[in-house]
Amino acid sequence: MYDIAVIGGGPAGLSAAVQARVRNKSVLVVSGDDRDNPLRKTQRIDNYLGFPQVSGQELLDRFQTHAAQMGAEQKTGRVLNIMSMGDTFYLSIGSEMEQARAIILATGVVWANKYPGEVELLGSGVSYCATCDGMLYRNKEVVVVGKAADAPHEANYLQELGCKVTYVSDKDPDGLRPDIPFVKAPKVEILGEGRVTALRAGSTTIPCEGVFILRPSMAPADLLPGLAVENGYLKVDRNMSTNLPGVFAAGDCTGLPLQVSKAVGEGLVAGLRAAEYLDQLQA
């Protein structure tokens, strides 16, 4: 079990990890594919103190190296849900499970808008994890809705399992197997009564029994039901505490301004406060 699990590997999450390690807490940082991190795509940053005209990739590389040197463990994966059981949080990361005594949410901006039919058919054909549920759809028609950089890889995995995959996205996929049909569509709708029967992608209707929706990350309020949200962002106090005990948040997920400096500062506070929270529990 880890003392603290940090969800998100951007400036806020890595800053929190460093500060928690300063307080000698064990830390796991869980983040998605680096290609989905908006900071890595930023060509030039001029307003981060002490690093004028630095690229986002260089800055993120420095942050990751610093956190690793401090002893924070970093894991690539998509956190699907978090369950609170007493003083322990259980994190479902793909098909794996990790435990922590405190949580820091640093997911960045994740829009929680759902596709039509997604909520109603979740668990009845709609899945967020190919490695978890892929075997259930062997020899069956499935659709992968690719919003994350690793979605083509997950689609390939499903095809190799024996699923009959169609890939749908608003962007051309990078690394998709040539034998997987690709439908380009900005909007999708999941169809079915009680079970998934098809997915409508633009003007194309694709019969299927399963739909895998692969976003870069889950919205924080979906990870932990009961989190207070205000104007679309997580509500926190000056200690970066949410309304749930043992759960802290930092960075873009807490609101404007969406800046690296703000994220790093909030991550520092969240990391220190999470460590203090654990010290108080032990006392």
Rank of each mutant, 00 (worst) to 15 (best):
L122E: 15
L122S: 13
G123W: 13
G123M: 13
G125S: 14
V126H: 04
V126K: 05
V126L: 04
Y128N: 13
Y128I: 11
C129A: 12
C129R: 10
C129V: 14
A130V: 01
T131K: 02
M135A: 14
L136F: 14
Y137R: 05
N139S: 12
E141M: 11
V142A: 03
V144P: 02
V145M: 13
V145D: 08
G146R: 01
K147D: 14
A151N: 10
H153K: 15
E154C: 02
A155E: 05
A155K: 06
E160Q: 10
L161F: 02
K164H: 09
T166A: 03
Y167G: 04
S169Y: 03
P173Q: 06
G175R: 13
L176R: 09
P178W: 10
I180A: 00
I180T: 03
V183F: 09
V183N: 06
K187D: 14
V188W: 02
V188Q: 09
V188D: 12
G192H: 06
G192I: 06
E193K: 07
R195W: 10
V196S: 07
A198V: 01
A198Q: 00
A198R: 03
L199I: 13
T205A: 10
I206E: 02
P207R: 11
P207D: 13
C208K: 06
C208M: 02
C208F: 08
E209L: 14
E209T: 10
G210R: 06
V211C: 05
I213F: 03
I213N: 05
L214T: 02
R215P: 07
M218V: 07
M218L: 03
M218W: 04
A219L: 01
A221I: 14
D222V: 05
L223E: 03
L224T: 05
L224A: 06
L227T: 00
A228P: 08
V229P: 00
V229M: 05
G232H: 08
K235I: 02
D237W: 09
T242A: 08
G246I: 01
V247E: 05
G251D: 08
D252N: 12
C253P: 00
T254R: 08
T254C: 05
G255H: 11
P257W: 00
A263M: 02
